[in-house]
Design a protein around this nucleic acid. Structure first.
Length: 561
RNA sequence: GGCCCCUUAGUCAAACGGCUAAGACGUCGCCCUCUCACGGCGAAGAUAUGGGUUCGAUUCCCGUAGGGGUCACCA
């Protein structure tokens, strides 16, 4: 067979050569050891929690080494593409502090556009480039066309692929599949000419020379040494619309974009053999690979399952809705990514995670379960270290979007709100009251008369006459000018006046000698003033609330009893 | 089913082949304390399993089991 002739027949318009491509996309001029990484999502929806892992790793490795981190949009499947998804992806990644040096960025018109010399960065715009290499492979007898009629193609597209595959009985189908593949390899130039004349579409398949009995030694940066069986499948390179499959695009793009480290999920491990063959056929130098373990969830039977789109916690936008601060999510991701991160963070509590020396060797090779409890703990710690102003700003931002009524209350008096957030903040042992901005309202909503309420039931467990008399006595002596000790001495005095113990040690030793204790008196005040059974320090609460509100609420309680 | 990956407490995990197998989250108890939160102290809890190699195995090798992934003109 005259492969040069076949190549010209199939790709008459391709005049450029791989050498031209090499000249157009030369090796990058970067310092020794600089890594070029990329995030390459397909624009089929939102950013998945699992997607934040490879992108965080890529970002860290590139920027830590003085390299380049780029975004490539893998939109080779027009059928699955979701309108506007690419823009959404970029915005969400930005929300989590992930920025790209190069690739697809959001332009001034709000649409995706290119930045950098190695583009285009949308695969759908790179058809010409792929065809150069496709033609080269045909010319070398390493790839061949398989024709179908338009009618057959339409029928194929109409099938629900996933459902069809699921129903398939693999071991019975295997042999037939193979025979079909081998049959497709034999064709004549005349047949090709006839098909082309009839305008029949074709796919381009790789002509595999592999033997799966033979194993290729391979080292993955995370998984370690692996033995990969050679690929023996004539897989599709170009689909009938001329757009490449993932495999072909991966080889061409990552070579021409000069990617040094390919970071992707371990679900790609089974197709690695295809990629090894492609890089060999194309004469490309193989990049380093990092196949990262999947994030798992528990299914109803208690088994681990890959965290997938529909699962709780999969959509990164959900975290915003739930009120998780992006900084907290990033922190949690770092703890999962590098096992020594937490130790480092304890030693460097004030440094941002970008200063942490990210280490590929410290990455886990097995999939971990997503743990909200741990996320909450990490979040509480981070928020507890923020200043009151910062907490106010972020909580208000969140509320304005997801709870506008509460957002309005917060915004109405910034100083008041900030004073509330300042309670118990700062110092070595700050309060850790909330892990999400959504919890803020429940914690401090009582400071606002608009949403302040008292559950009647709270007073039921005490003697109403005692409560009333304690509150009245409190009002008689209360002065906002008192310092904390003076304030508490007055509470103790009230306790004694109504026959309650003012000394807790004494009360605990002989509880039967008293009707109650100063703790109970404090509780009367707490219920009256906060409407809750627990609250931050009552002195601090009253100071922030101010005399008018305190008196009004206590008075109201007295009248209600 | 074939192929591939994985396996240390409930979860995340540390341990050049070498002390009583770290630490964090969670759980429970005690202390501190005007309640809560914080903090302090403590407890329970793990090398899936069977063989080998070795003076010695969580670590290396083989088998078994379990879990996961993948097998498209999807990525």
């Amino acid at each position: 067979m005259d492969y040069q002739y076949l190549a010209d027949l199939l790709f008459p318009n391709v005049t450029k050569t791989p050498e031209d491509m090499e000249a157009q996309y030369p090796p990058r001029d970067l310092p020794e050891g600089a890594k070029v990484t990329r995030f390459a999502p397909s624009p089929t929806g939102f950013v998945h929690f699992g997607g934040l892992f490879p992108s965080t790793i890529g970002e860290r490795l590139a920027h830590q080494s003085g390299g380049v981190f780029l975004l490539r949009i893998e939109d080779t499947d027009a059928k699955r593409e979701v309108e506007g998804a690419a823009v959404g992806l970029v915005r969400t990644l930005e929300h989590y502090g992930i920025y790209f040096d190069e690739g697809a960025v959001i332009g001034e018109d709000g649409n995706i556009c290119d930045k950098g010399a190695y583009g285009p960065y949308k695969q759908s715009q790179r058809a010409e480039i792929y065809h150069v290499y496709a033609k080269q492979l045909v010319r070398e007898g390493k790839a061949y066309p398989v024709f179908t009629t338009q009618a057959e193609l339409d029928a194929l597209n109409a099938l629900d692929k996933k459902a069809e595959i699921k129903a398939k009985d693999w071991h019975e189908d295997d042999g037939a599949q193979k025979e079909k593949m081998l049959a497709a390899r034999s064709f004549t130039i005349e047949e090709v000419e006839a098909h082309l004349a009839a305008n029949d579409p074709f796919v381009l398949r790789l002509l595999s020379d592999g033997d799966p009995e033979k194993k290729i030694p391979f080292t993955d940066l995370i998984k370690g040494k692996l033995d990969i069986p050679e690929n023996d499948e004539d897989f599709v390179l170009l689909k009938s619309d001329g757009i490449p499959t993932y495999h072909f695009a991966h080889a061409v793009d990552d070579h021409l974009m000069r990617t040094t480290h390919v970071i992707r999920g371990e679900e790609w491990l089974p197709s690695l053999a295809k990629h090894l063959m492609l890089f060999r056929y194309l004469g490309f130098r193989l990049p380093k690979y990092m196949h990262i373990a999947q994030i798992m969830r528990l299914d109803e039977n208690g088994n681990k399952k890959k965290l997938s789109k529909r699962d709780m916690g999969a959509n990164m936008d959900d975290y915003s809705r739930m009120g998780y601060d992006p900084a907290c999510v990033c922190e949690y991701i770092m703890t999962l990514l590098n096992s020594n991160y937490e130790e480092w963070h304890m030693q460097n509590p004030d440094k941002p995670y970008t200063e942490f020396p990210f280490n590929i060797k410290k990455m886990s090779n097995s999939g971990c379960l997503f743990d909200f409890k741990k996320l909450n703990d990490v979040s509480k710690n981070i928020i507890s270290r923020m200043t009151a102003e910062e907490v106010y700003r972020r909580a208000t931002e969140w509320a304005n979007e997801y709870d506008p009524a509460f957002g309005k209350l917060l915004s109405h008096d910034a100083d008041y709100a900030t004073a509330i957030f300042a309670i118990g903040r700062g110092g070595k042992k700050p309060r850790k009251d909330f892990a999400t901005w959504a919890e803020v309202k429940g914690y401090m909503g009582f400071f606002y008369d608009e949403i302040f309420t008292v559950e009647d039931a709270y007073a039921e467990q005490f003697d109403k006459a005692d409560i009333k008399s304690a509150l009245e006595k409190f009002l008689a002596s209360y002065s906002p000018a008192d310092d904390m000790n003076a304030w508490f001495d007055k509470i103790k005095a009230v306790a004694e006046e109504i026959g309650y113990a003012s000394d807790m040690k004494q009360y605990k030793a002989t509880p039967d000698a008293f009707r109650g204790s100063v703790a109970d008196v404090s509780m009367f005040l707490r219920v009256a003033v906060t409407g809750k059974l627990n609250s931050p320090d009552m002195y601090a609460v009253m100071q922030v609330l101010g005399e008018d509100r305190v008196r009004a609420r206590v008075q109201n309680m007295i009248e209600t009893l």
